[in-house]
Amino acid sequence: HIECVVCGDKSSGKHYGQFTCEGCKSFFKRSVRRNLTYTCRANRNCPIDQHHRNQCQYCRLKKCLKVGMRREAVQRG
């Protein structure tokens, strides 16, 4: 199976330009649609994997963008 490029979980297909799991797909869509801004409580390099992906939204969104998920691919409302 193909892994989610963000957290390594099982990918459910290509979403917003990259293969991601449902969790990262939904997180990215929600973040972009609502134009959410997050803050990192650590050093902005938190581990984002299957077990830690919900611990830091700032670093999760940063990783989504770093691996090539595209904001412009998210349809507005």
Rank of each mutant, 00 (worst) to 15 (best):
N43L: 09
V74W: 05
D9P: 01
S31G: 03
H15L: 11
N45F: 04
V74D: 09
E72C: 04
Q57V: 03
K62F: 06
V67N: 08
V32H: 15
R34Y: 05
Y38I: 06
P47Y: 10
G23Y: 14
C7Q: 00
C59G: 01
C4L: 00
G13P: 07
S26T: 14
K10C: 08
C46I: 05
Y58G: 07
R53P: 14
C7S: 01
C40D: 03
T39V: 11
K63Y: 05
H52R: 07
S26F: 05
R60V: 07
C7R: 01
T37C: 10
C56W: 02
K29T: 12
N35F: 03
N45P: 11
A42C: 03
N45M: 05
C46M: 02
R33M: 10
Y38R: 02
K63P: 02
K29A: 09
R70V: 12
K62R: 09
C21N: 02
R60M: 15
T20C: 14
Q50D: 12
R53E: 11
K25F: 14
R33E: 13
I2T: 06
Y58E: 12
N35L: 03
F19I: 05
C4S: 03
C40H: 00
Q57S: 09
K63L: 04
C21Y: 00
R70Y: 05
L65R: 03
R53A: 12
S11H: 15
L61S: 02
N43C: 01
K62P: 03
Y16S: 10
F19Q: 14
C21D: 00
M69W: 02
F27K: 00
H51A: 12
A42F: 05
V74I: 05
S11N: 07
R71F: 11
K25V: 12
C4G: 02
A42S: 12
Y58S: 11
F27T: 00
K25Y: 14
K62G: 07
Q50M: 08
C21Q: 04
A73M: 09
T37Q: 08
I48L: 07
T20M: 09
Q55V: 11
V5K: 15
T20E: 08
C64Q: 01
R34G: 14
I2M: 09
K10I: 12
V74H: 08
F27Y: 02
Y58D: 10
Q75E: 14
K14S: 15
G8N: 10
K62V: 13
L61V: 03
K10Y: 12
R41M: 13
K66T: 12
H15F: 13
C24G: 00
Q55C: 11
G17M: 02
K25E: 15
M69A: 00
C59N: 00
Q55M: 07
F27A: 01
A73C: 12
D9V: 05
R34I: 13
F28W: 09
H51R: 07
K63M: 10
E22H: 03
T37I: 10
V32Y: 09
G68C: 03
R70A: 12
V74F: 07
Y16I: 05
H1G: 15
A73E: 12
K25H: 15
H51S: 12
C46W: 01
V6R: 00
M69C: 04
N43V: 14
E3P: 05
S26G: 15
Q75H: 15
I2W: 03
G68E: 03
Y16T: 05
C59M: 01
G17N: 07
C59F: 00
A42P: 00
K66G: 08
H15C: 04
F27Q: 01
I48Y: 03
C24R: 01
G23K: 10
C59W: 00
R33G: 10
V6F: 03
R53V: 09
K62M: 11
C64H: 03
K29N: 11
F19D: 09
A73S: 10
M69T: 02
G13M: 10
E72Y: 07
S12Y: 03
S11M: 08
Y38W: 02
K66Q: 12
N45A: 09
Q50F: 05
K66I: 09
N43A: 14
H51N: 14
R44L: 09
K14D: 15
S31L: 03
M69E: 02
Y38H: 00
N45C: 06
Q50P: 13
C40R: 00
C64W: 02
F28Y: 04
H15M: 15
R53Y: 15
R60F: 14
R71S: 11
C40I: 03
I48H: 00
Q50T: 09
R33L: 14
N45L: 05
Y16W: 14
E72W: 05
N54W: 06
K14N: 12
R30N: 10
C7A: 02
S12I: 10
C40V: 01
I2V: 02
L65Y: 09
A73Y: 09
T37P: 12
G8T: 06
I48W: 05
M69N: 00
R30P: 03
G77E: 13
V67E: 11
C7E: 02
L36A: 09
R30G: 09
R71M: 14
G68Y: 04
R76D: 15
L65T: 07
T20N: 06
G8H: 06
I48Q: 07
P47K: 10
Y38P: 13
R41G: 15
L61A: 02
R30A: 08
D9N: 08
G17A: 04
N45K: 05
Q50I: 14
Q75C: 09
H52C: 08
C4P: 01
Y58Q: 06
Y58V: 01
C7W: 01
S11T: 10
C21W: 00
D49N: 11
R44Y: 04
R44T: 12
H52K: 10
Q75D: 15
C4N: 00
K29F: 07
V6T: 01
N54E: 13
Q57P: 10
A73H: 12
Q18T: 07
H52V: 12
R53G: 12
G13H: 05
V67H: 07
H52W: 05
R70H: 11
H15N: 14
K63G: 03
V67T: 12
V67D: 04
F19R: 08
K10S: 07
G77P: 11
D9M: 13
F28R: 02
R70L: 13
N35S: 03
K10N: 14
E22N: 07
G17F: 03
P47N: 02
R71V: 10
R60C: 11
V6Q: 01
S12K: 06
V67Y: 07
H15P: 14
C21I: 00
T37K: 14
T39K: 08
N54F: 06
N43Y: 04
N54V: 10
V5T: 14
